[in-house]
């Protein structure tokens, strides 16, 4: 009886794992990625560049949205100063349940060249849990796209 029950439970679990709804949601999440950009400094210019004709980010269904409520991924790039910190915290709180944060550029990773400065935070990791790091000062557009595709592969 116990063995039978275990088998049942196992089957149910497996069903949940491979059920149609789960597959569909994973497909949706991996094919249309909404990104909210929190940019400052020169990394913002590189994020602008990946919209352009050379690195057309629309090919993978990457969209940049205007509010954190609509986004799946929040992309923090550039120098985060003490004055910017409360705004970033607000944005992070109004972000949905599944919070994914990508830190772009060495300033966002650990303060970068200005780690000695009093005004600059030593990376976003001090405040929030960071899922992906994109190194570089500023990182190339290919590197940013690569990070987003890593996030996309996570659902396969």
């Amino acid at each position: 009886m116990k063995i039978l029950l275990r088998k049942m439970v196992h089957k149910v679990r497996n069903f949940k794992k491979f059920s149609l709804f789960n597959k569909l949601t994973n497909w949706v999440k991996s094919t249309s990625i909404n990104i909210y950009c929190f940019t400052s400094g020169c990394c913002g210019n590189e994020i602008l560049a990946i919209l352009g004709p050379l690195y057309d980010s629309e090919r993978w269904g990457i969209n940049f949205v205007s509010s954190p409520e609509r986004a799946d991924v929040i992309m923090v790039s550039g120098t985060i100063t003490e004055k910017m910190k409360p705004i970033l915290e607000d944005l992070y709180n109004s972000f949905g349940n599944e919070k994914v944060l990508i830190a772009v550029g060495s300033c966002a990773i650990n303060g970068g060249p200005f780690y000695k400065s009093d005004f600059v935070l030593k990376g976003v990791k001090e405040i929030f849990n960071v899922d992906l790091y994109v190194p570089g000062c500023p990182p190339r557009p290919e590197a940013i796209i690569n990070a987003i595709l890593k996030y996309k592969d996570h659902f396969k």
Partner: peptide
């Protein structure tokens, strides 16, 4: 003032050649 990095302060005490990459970041 949301982007104040304090380059002028960070650079103080540095050797002449080493300061160049920091001065780069003044203008994006």
């Amino acid at each position: 003032g949301y982007l104040t990095t304090g380059v002028e302060k960070v650079v103080e005490g540095m050797e002449i050649d080493k300061a160049i990459p920091f001065i780069d970041r003044v203008d994006s």
